[in-house]
Every structure is written in C-alpha cells, then in structure tokens.
C-alpha cells in the first residue's frame, strides 16, 4: 500500500482549526483511497471529532483544504459534504425508535407518489430498495416492519450505516461504531465495515478500541493535542506503540523511528 497511483478519494491537506485561542487542529494532513479503512485514534481532546466535523462539513477549517477525488471542496455544511459523496454516521442519535427499519432508512428522503395519487409515500418501492441495501451488506433484520426499538444494538448501528449507504457515498465516516456493543454485535458491525470496503468505498473510522483498530484498519492515523503524531500501516505497529503514541509516552526519537518504519512499510 506504499504507492498509490490514483488520487485519493479523500484528502485532508494541512488543515488547522482554532476555537478562539485554542488550536483544535494544527496542520493535519491525511488521505484515504477507495477500498481502504483508515482509523483515526487519539486520546480525548486529540482533535478526532473536530477532524471528522471538518470533513463532514459541520466545521469550516481556518487553514488548509479538503479534497474529494482530487478536487478541492469548500464545504459550508453537511449538505455540501453529502453532495460531494461523504456520509457520516454518528455514534448515537441516529435512529427514531418508534419508526421501523424502512422508515428510518428513508427518513428525510421518502419516495412519494405524485399528487394525483394523494402524495402517499411509496412504501413498496422503499421497502424493496431497503431490502436490497440490507442484503447487499448482509445485514439481517427479521422483520423490516417492527419499530427500531426492538432491534439489537448491532442491528441499529448496521441500519444507521445502511442509511448512509443509500446515498451511495464514496467516503463513509463512522464515529465510534462499536462503542457500547457486545462481542457478537461488534463482530457484526466490523464485518459490515469489511463489506463497505469490499464495495470499494473509503471508510474512516474513529475508535477508542485498539483491538478493533488492529483488526479492521489498513492504516491508523494517531492524533494528539490537535497534531498528527503518527501514521502506521497494518502490521507495522504494536498495540503498545499505538497507545504510547496516543498518550505521548513515546518520545520524539522513538516516534521518528516509527515514522521511518512507516515510510518503508
């Protein structure tokens, strides 16, 4: 994975964000290629959320730019990011418990019949499309007509991810997708991320869980205090090194060694 000839589908170039006097992000760059999973790790306050918000258009960078498929996009809001092919799935607050799977998948973009047919929602077409998306990603929902409150945590997270896939994005940002999930459900969601990758989408995942990161990520970007302190590829790091980089326990020399390893990796 050292040399990529096509342009990255998502590139963050020298992005800085300040909140008043506080530098939330300083000169951060990263790139993601199609069919690649990049994990964003860091301690609390490292700037992960700010970076995701910048990529998804919620936060405007003070310096630097975001490129999608090689073209710079000035994103003024989440709609611009969505239009550029970037979808974000947040950890919580994604589903309405009282609505069923199909209603949740299509919320805000329902398919409606024309006015002379009473502006009814076209449930049949939405149901059909929903089942296609769910089966493409091998998400098992026994009954797409029961309210989401009766789904498991893993199923809910899967539905939230499928919801973002309906827009056919090139880049999917996942904020803590496995937090608060049990072992079996976590496996479910990780398998789903693998399938997104297999579909040729670029996936950026924020995670606190080093085990998940080791298992799923092709590359890991480590942020600390708003700066990118390391970038490592699969197999090119140990769990302890990663934690050390996140917490700042690794000194500069060791970091340089790690970076060198990365460059050759």
């Amino acid at each position: 994975m050292a040399i990529h000839t096509p342009p990255p589908v998502l590139e963050v170039r020298n992005v800085s964000v300040r909140f008043g006097g506080v530098a939330a992000l300083t000169d951060v760059s990263m790139a993601v290629w199609p069919g690649e999973v990049v994990a964003l790790v860091g301690d609390n306050g490292a700037g992960k959320s700010t970076l995701v918000k910048t990529i998804s258009g919620i936060q405007q960078p003070d310096a630097g730019e975001i490129l999608v498929a090689g073209r710079a996009h000035a994103m003024k809001g989440p709609q611009d990011a969505a239009a550029a092919g970037i979808q974000t799935v947040y950890q919580d607050l994604a589903l309405c418990d009282n609505l069923d799977t199909v209603q949740n998948l299509f919320l805000g973009r329902e398919i409606c019949l024309p006015w002379w047919k009473g502006r009814r929602m076209d449930r049949a077409r939405m149901e059909k499309r929903a089942r296609e998306v769910l089966s493409d990603l091998d998400v098992k929902i026994r009954d797409t007509r029961v309210p989401s409150s009766s789904l498991s945590g893993g199923q809910r997270q899967s539905v939230a991810i499928c919801r973002s896939i309906l827009a056919n994005p090139q880049v999917v940002l996942l904020d803590e997708p496995t937090a608060a999930l049990g072992v079996a459900q976590r496996k479910q969601v990780l398998a789903l991320i693998e399938r997104l990758k297999a579909q040729g989408r670029a996936v950026v995942i924020i995670s606190h869980d080093i085990g998940d990161v080791q298992q799923i990520a092709d590359r890991v970007v480590v942020l600390r205090l708003g700066r990118k302190v390391a970038e490592v590829t699969r197999g090119g790091y140990s769990r302890d090194e990663l934690i050390a980089a996140m917490t700042g326990a690794l000194d500069a020399a060791e970091l340089a060694a790690l970076r060198k390893e990365l460059a050759h990796g």
Binding site: L93, L95, C96, L99, Q103, L107, G108, R109
Partner: peptide, 14 residues
C-alpha cells in the same frame, strides 16, 4: 412521529 421520538435524528435527516 420522527420529531416526537428523536428530534436530533430528525434534524440530521434534513
């Protein structure tokens, strides 16, 4: 119904 159950999710859905 969406707003009543989860206003934040509804807002994010546009």
């Amino acid at each position: 119904y969406a707003v009543g159950a989860n206003a934040e999710a509804a807002r994010r859905a546009g």
